[in-house]
Amino acid sequence: MTEAGTVKGQEFWRWQEYHRIMPKKWTNKDLITAGVDVGSVGSKAAIMVNGEAYSWGITRTGSNSPESATKALSYALEGTGLKASDIKYIVGTGYGRVNVPMANKAITEIACHAKGANYIWGPTVRTVLDVGGQDIKAIRIDETGRVTSFLMNDKCAAGTGRGMEVFADLLQIPIEDIGGISLKVEKEPEPVSCTCVAFAKTEAMGLLRKGWTKEKVLAAYTRAMAVRMANLINRVGLEKELVVTGGQSKNIGIVSRIEVILGVKCLPMPNWRDEGSLDPMVAGALGAALFAKALYEKAQKA
């Protein structure tokens, strides 16, 4: 068990910041590129060696986007022996993409998430549900990872990472356990009719007072959020294979319910806790680093 399951003070919303270095080595002949994805909740930076994921870092986004970008990139470089100056090309993406100071170019997170999903799961992926800190996006892609159609939800915290942080605090359950706990119900309750996270602060309390268990409350809310996400996917059109990226890809309660509602299985999720494994939360940064490689090579040819 990682540090994730432990409770630090009363900050149930707090999720684990971490960085990872893949086992392979790099040499001076290799092309090093990077992608920096500054999201509303998490900042992710990924380093690629010849277009292969090499290392990444995930940190919480602070109030200052440029600082968060710098912090994420240094975290990704930590222990690799690489210096920022070794990186030939950097693409910035995410909500704070225009504020990534070291980036050679900014590209929308939609394109980057699509490219990253194609990288993580391969060319059979056609539908990507990206559930980040403040957005839910349904993206259709072709076999090269190019976006063909995309939809973003209206601004609403229901189902987003930020919304889940509020639930974690409200029910006093560590955020990384929320998904699993929401599945610990004998019978799936009816989804709540109102998913508004602000109202949930009183409505969920009301349900607990009525004798509902935390598990049942979470199940009813998670179900309602999964229904919303499934609706978004249906609007862009579901085509197999389906994958989930972004921070909430780690929420098994959300992912498994979407599978049930849509009647399809997602491609297996890499187990991000394992060394040597990719993490769907860094899909955007990986996609950005791939674009960085392509753009660098294009510039060299020109």
């Binding site: 063909t148 159609s149 995309f150 939809l151 209206d154 919303r228 609706n231 609007r235």
Partner: peptide
């Protein structure tokens, strides 16, 4: 690339 801007809620769905 086709981009949908809008929402689905209890009143129906609306997209540009």
């Amino acid at each position: 690339m086709i981009t949908h801007y809008g929402y689905i809620d209890g009143s129906g769905e609306y997209y540009i």
